[in-house]
Amino acid sequence: NPGDKQHTISTIVKVVSGIDEKSLVNISNLYKLIVRDVCLSSSIEVAEAAKLLENIQRDVNIALMNEIWSCLTRLDISTDEVLRVASTKWNFIKFHPGLVGGHCIAVDPYYLIEKAQEKGIVLPLVKQARVTNESIIFSLYRRILQILQFPNEGKRVLIKGLSFKPNVTDLRNSKVPALKILLEEVGVLVDVYDPLVSREQAKEAFNIDLSRIEEVSSVDYNLVVSPYDLSITTNP
Score class of each variant (00 low, 15 high):
175 K>M: 07
179 L>Y: 08
152 N>M: 15
148 L>Y: 06
164 F>R: 03
172 R>V: 00
173 N>L: 10
179 L>C: 09
170 D>Q: 13
173 N>H: 15
174 S>P: 12
144 I>Q: 01
160 K>A: 01
156 R>V: 03
169 T>N: 11
162 L>A: 03
148 L>R: 04
145 L>H: 11
170 D>G: 07
171 L>K: 05
154 G>N: 11
149 Q>W: 02
153 E>W: 12
173 N>G: 02
162 L>H: 04
160 K>D: 01
169 T>C: 05
180 K>A: 01
177 P>S: 09
156 R>D: 04
155 K>Y: 09
167 N>H: 14
161 G>E: 04
152 N>Q: 15
171 L>E: 11
154 G>V: 03
165 K>H: 04
168 V>K: 09
153 E>F: 15
180 K>S: 08
176 V>L: 08
168 V>L: 06
179 L>K: 08
158 L>N: 05
149 Q>R: 13
150 F>C: 03
148 L>H: 06
171 L>I: 07
149 Q>M: 13
166 P>W: 10
174 S>G: 11
156 R>Q: 10
166 P>F: 02
153 E>K: 14
178 A>L: 15
154 G>M: 06
152 N>E: 08
149 Q>E: 14
181 I>W: 10
168 V>G: 01
143 R>F: 04
143 R>Y: 13
143 R>S: 01
154 G>D: 09
149 Q>P: 03
165 K>N: 02
174 S>D: 13
173 N>W: 07
168 V>F: 14
159 I>Y: 05
161 G>N: 07
145 L>T: 02
147 I>Y: 04
177 P>Y: 12
176 V>E: 08
143 R>A: 01
163 S>L: 01
170 D>K: 14
147 I>Q: 12
169 T>L: 03
152 N>A: 14
180 K>N: 08
173 N>V: 04
144 I>D: 01
155 K>P: 00
154 G>W: 12
